[in-house]
Design a protein around this nucleic acid. Structure first.
Lengths: 184, 184
DNA sequence: CCTTAAGTCGAGGGTAGTCCTCAGGTTAGC
DNA sequence: GCTAACCTGAGGACTACCCTCGACTTAAGG
C-alpha cells in the first residue's frame, strides 16, 4: 500500500508539486496541467500517474494556502497592538495576493466553505481593534474582505502600485471625529 | 458606396449593435461574436456581413464607452462644489463598471491610449478639489485610478456590496489633521 | 549482471469553444 | 415577377484543454 516510491518517482512528484505552486501563482486556479508538467520537466503522463484526478494536485495546494492564511490571521491576533495586528494581517494578505494569483482567487471567492476558518479569525481581529479604539466602530468583517479584494485588483493592474493604494485606504479604517457611519 | 441599406438589413444591423452592447456588458471584451448574433436573433453569417472584421463592431462600442466616460468627467468638472463633482465622477464610474464588464476592463487597462482623454480631465478634477481644500493634498490622479479599479473588484465579487465599500473608502480621500502623506 | 516491477514518455484521440466562409435559399424594392 | 441584396447555418480550420495507453527506460534486489 504505502511502499516507498522509487527514487526517481519521489523526485518527480516533488518537482510536480513545486511546479504547480509556481504555475498556480502565475496563472491562477484554472492553469492547465500541461503547464505544470512542463515546468516540472516531466511528461504529462507522469503527472497523471501521480495525481490521477485533476483535483488531487490542486486541492492540496489550495488547502495549503488557506491554512497559511489562517496561520497569518492567528499570528496577527497575537500582536501586542491591536491595530498593528490588523494592519499586518491586511498587508500580508495583500502581499500574498500580489504574488499569487490562485490565492487572490481564493480571497475573492465570497462564499467558500474553507474561508469560514478565516472568517472567524477576521471577526476577532475586528473586534479586538475596535475595543482598542483603533478601528472605526461601523466597519465589520465584510469591509475587511472588500478591502483585500479591492487591493488585489490594483496589484493586478499595476504590480508596483498596490502598496500606495493600501496605505492611502488604510486611513479610511481609522476612527475620526464627526464621521458618518457607512450605513446599514 | 453609401447607398441606403435595405430595410431588413438596417434592422438587423441595429439589432446587432444593441446585442453587442448587452453581451459586452455581461461577458467583457472577449465575448464570442456568436453570442452577439444569437442575442440579436440573427445568424452568425449576418453578423460577418455587416462587420467583416472582429474589430469593426467592438471597437466602435469601446469608443462609445470612452467618450461617455469623458462626458461624465466633463460634467463632473462643472459641478458647483468641487468635492461633489469628484464624488460624482467616481461614483458614476463605479456604477458603470458594476453594470458593464467591458467598461471595467477599459478602466483597469492602465496604459490605454484612449484613456488619455480621460486622464487629463481627472487631473483637473483632482486639482480643483485640492484647491478647494476638499481633497487630500498628497493624492494624485493615479490614486483615483486605483480607487476606481479597486471598487470594481468588489462589484464583481459581490454586486450588492460595492457602494458600502465606496462610501467607506471615500473617507480616505478627505484631508484630516496629523495625516501622514502616502509617500513618494 | 539480469530481471522485473515500477516508472516515464509523448503521440494522439476526445471534447469544447471560437473564428470565419460559402453555397444555397429568402426577400425587399422596383 | 426579377434581381440584387440579404440571410442562413452547417461545417472547415484553429486552438486549447482533457486524459489514455502502448512502447520504452530505469531503480533496486538478487
Amino acid at each position: 500500500m504505502d511502499r516507498p516510491l522509487r527514487r526517481d518517482a519521489r523526485r518527480n512528484r516533488d518537482a510536480l508539486v513545486a511546479a504547480a505552486r509556481e504555475v498556480l501563482a502565475e496563472r491562477g486556479i484554472e492553469a492547465p496541467l500541461e503547464a505544470v508538467a512542463k515546468r516540472a520537466g516531466v511528461a504529462i503522463g507522469t503527472l497523471y500517474r501521480h495525481f490521477p484526478e485533476r483535483g488531487d494536485l490542486i486541492d492540496t495546494l489550495l488547502e495549503e494556502k488557506v491554512s497559511a492564511w489562517a496561520g497569518l490571521a492567528r499570528r496577527s491576533l497575537e500582536a501586542g497592538d491591536a491595530w498593528e495586528g490588523l494592519v499586518r494581517f491586511l498587508e500580508e494578505t495583500c502581499d500574498l495576493q500580489a504574488r499569487d494569483r490562485a490565492f487572490t482567487e481564493l480571497v475573492c471567492l465570497s462564499h467558500l466553505d474553507e474561508r469560514s476558518e478565516v472568517n472567524g479569525l477576521v471577526a476577532r481581529l475586528v473586534d479586538r481593534a475596535q475595543r482598542a479604539g483603533a478601528l472605526r466602530g461601523d466597519v465589520g468583517p465584510i469591509d475587511l474582505a472588500y478591502f483585500m479584494m479591492a487591493v488585489s485588483r490594483v496589484a493586478e493592474a499595476d504590480p508596483g502600485g498596490w502598496r500606495r493604494h493600501f496605505r492611502l485606504m488604510l486611513d479610511a479604517l481609522r476612527p475620526r471625529p464627526h464621521q458618518e457611519p457607512v450605513g446599514a
